[in-house]
């Protein structure tokens, strides 16, 4: 648990930018703005935290002396324990039907299936991305439902919480390798896979995109990546040699403004766009590598 000192200054909206830039120059990591207040949170266990707050006040005093209409003295200061808010979101994270077949269930919730064919993905996402309820995740699960026929050798790039690896195993893919650049996500994914017996044989490794993917995973029939759009472009040339002829490459995590560029990058590498999926401002693509040419 971390205890913060919450410090609030009264600052008219038009002067908030100058106040925040000054606080940042003096060491703050940023600030919260309301109509007429600026708030910072200082870790009380950090050495010299009281001096730090005194430094902020002195900085704002200097602004006031140059004629900026602000009061450099905070209007309130209070202690705030991280335990009071860090798990607040869990109160709103409930079992959620994300596609026709799949329901994502928090590990701490007792949930009964509504229908026999409903498939459950149990998740304790902790700090890794992938509660399962984000549009980028549900788009990717829809893409998996469309292409999986069973037995596919599969790579899940940027697995996060592991939610998509579990979905793919439910749909019947064969062996799965899941990767993430973040060691913490690797640990979270492993813990989540253990909560889902269907995915107990998934292998998780730390890897920057496909860099550390062992050669034995070449000729994969299915590669999926629900990741940040700015790393999709560098990922495509890494995927091509690992994807078997006629194999599918599924991408999600694409925001409206970069969708045309990603589409072009996929096509320029010879991938055929089979389907473009869209939910709100988010996009996903089902793409296919060309089949081997048959020589007469």
């Amino acid at each position: 648990m971390i205890t913060y000192q919450k410090v609030v200054w009264q600052v008219p909206a038009e002067n908030q930018d100058v106040v925040i830039a000054t606080l940042v120059a003096l060491g703050a990591e940023g600030a919260e703005q309301r109509t007429d207040t600026v708030t910072i949170y200082q870790d009380v266990n950090q050495e010299g935290f009281e001096n730090q707050i005194a430094t902020y006040i002195a900085g704002l005093t200097a602004l006031a002396e140059r004629g900026l209409a602000i009061n450099s003295q905070p209007i309130s200061q209070e202690r705030l324990d991280s335990s009071t808010f860090e798990n607040e979101w869990k109160n709103y994270y409930h079992a959620s039907r994300v596609t026709n077949k799949f329901t994502v269930v928090p590990a701490w919730e007792d949930y009964q299936k509504a229908q026999d064919q409903e498939k459950l993905i149990v998740m304790d996402p902790d700090q890794a991305f992938g509660t399962g309820t984000h549009p980028t995740t549900s788009l990717m699960i829809q893409a998996l439902e469309a292409v999986v026929r069973g037995g596919e050798k599969t790579i899940d790039v940027g697995t996060g919480s592991g939610v998509l690896a579990v979905a793919a195993k439910h749909l019947g893919v064969g062996s799965v390798l899941a990767t993430d650049i973040d060691e913490e996500a690797v640990a979270t994914a492993q813990a989540n896979l253990a909560l889902n017996p269907v995915a107990s044989d998934v292998t998780v490794i730390a890897s920057d995109l496909m860099q550390d993917v062992p050669q034995e995973w070449s000729k994969s029939e299915l590669i999926m990546a629900n990741i940040l759009a700015d790393v999709i472009a560098p990922l495509i040339p890494q995927v091509m040699p690992m994807l078997t002829a006629g194999g599918y490459f599924l991408v999600s995590g694409i925001y409206d403004d970069v969708e045309p560029a990603i589409k072009q990058a996929l096509e320029s590498h010879g991938l055929t766009i089979v389907q473009h999926l869209n939910q709100g401002t988010w996009h996903a693509f089902i793409t296919k590598k060309a089949d081997d040419l048959i020589n007469d």
């Binding site: 990591e29 940023g30 949170y41 808010f85 607040e88 979101w89 700090q127």
Partner: peptide, 24 residues
């Protein structure tokens, strides 16, 4: 870390989800 954690935590948001999207 602050201000993201305290500000969004109090608002009931999954902080990891925000930081991932914002950084992207």
């Amino acid at each position: 870390a602050p201000p993201v954690g305290p500000a969004l935590g109090q608002a009931g948001i999954n902080i990891a989800q925000f930081t991932k999207e914002f950084n992207a």
